[in-house]
């Protein structure tokens, strides 16, 4: 690990003021330190935000929840309000990582996790995300775990988070404090960027911008599900995951919200999926149409071709469960 300057912040304002060139905030550190040991991340300075007063979950007047950026993943998953009203989020968190990691990993940090693409982690190999302009080793390489949606010729990495997939299905908003002291609210739908020609830029956050909170709107109507398919039963990243929220009224799907992990460079959501469902009576034909809408532009890279039929089946299985429709 390369050495760095270290500063401990005692307020969000002090944290953003302490930012200089090559600065990273550190909270749980479970992903950042992993990457620093491998010299994939080489910050000049760490600003320790772990003791800021941002570890509460509060109810808002509109019925939603405001989650402090430092709430550990474990505590968020176990919060009675989350368990009761946002079960998809509890389930997604509990499907991720291990007990030890969930105890340390923060809400804000989880949103900013880096990909687990083998080549991003292998500093002996070209990677446009790690070293822009060097090329993508995954295209034409071992890409079994990588993306089939939203890829570019520069990068086919997947976003690894489970939590963020549920938050995308729940229409979360990310609240930040910028280096100049301004606050802003960013819809999770606008938060992540496609790789395009700049796969090293993953979010719309500006340098030195600090995530302070994540807001969930009032609880959605209907049933919620998180289903994750992976290579082992526990403690593995998703090959495909589905976060779904769906309500049925008068025999027809009244509302639907679906986000997907393991498929794209960001927690994936596609309005065409929901358009294929809302207003229709639940049936396998409708579910098939939704899956077709999701995967219309899917592109396999060889070893990950299997994800396309797998995603179709997992989505349809979730839709059957959510609507109570027998297969």
């Amino acid at each position: 690990m390369k050495t760095f300057d270290y500063a401990k912040a005692d307020s969000p304002e002090a944290a953003v003021a302490a930012v200089g060139t090559g600065t990273k905030f550190i909270a749980g550190g479970t992903n950042l330190l992993d990457l620093m040991k491998l010299q994939i991340e080489t910050p000049d300075k760490l600003v320790d935000i772990s003791r800021l007063d941002l570890a509460q979950i509060e109810e808002r007047e509109d019925g939603g929840l405001t989650i402090g950026a430092l709430v550990p993943n474990s505590d968020l998953a176990a919060d009675p309000r989350v368990v009761e009203h946002y079960a998809v989020l509890s389930r997604a968190l509990l499907a991720g990582a291990s007990g030890q990691l969930r105890n340390k990993a923060s809400t804000g940090g989880n949103l900013l996790q880096r990909t687990r693409c083998y080549y991003f982690y292998d500093t002996a190999m070209p990677c446009n995300k790690r070293e822009p302009g060097t090329g993508c080793s995954a295209i034409g390489g071992f890409n079994r775990i990588l993306a089939v949606l939203g890829t570019s010729e520069q990068c086919i990495a997947t976003h690894p988070s489970d939590m963020a997939v549920a938050m995308r299905a729940l229409d979360a908003t990310i609240v930040t404090l910028k280096a100049d002291g301004d606050r802003r609210r960013i819809s999770i739908h606008e938060f992540y960027r496609l790789p395009g020609d700049t796969p090293e830029i993953e979010t719309v956050l500006e340098p030195g911008e600090l995530i302070t909170h994540v807001e969930l709107p009032a609880p959605p109507k209907g049933n919620q599900i998180y289903r994750k398919v992976r290579d082992r039963a526990s403690y593995a990243f998703a090959l495909v995951s589905v976060a779904g929220v769906l309500s049925v009224e008068d025999g027809k799907i009244a509302s639907a919200s679906f986000a997907f992990g393991g498929l794209g460079p960001m927690p994936w959501r596609d309005a065409a999926v929901e358009a294929a469902l809302v207003g229709k009576a639940p049936s396998d034909a409708v579910f098939e149409a939704a899956a077709t809408a999701l995967l219309a532009d899917a592109k396999g890279y060889g070893s990950n071709d299997f994800k396309i039929p797998l995603a179709r089946r997992v989505l349809i299985a979730c839709l059957r469960d959510l609507t109570g429709a027998a297969s």
Partner: peptide
Amino acid sequence: GACTVLINGRRVNSCLTLAVM
């Protein structure tokens, strides 16, 4: 998980956190 310790009673991976924190 071989490095697991308890910090304020909570289990964590001691390899993935800085002592200074």
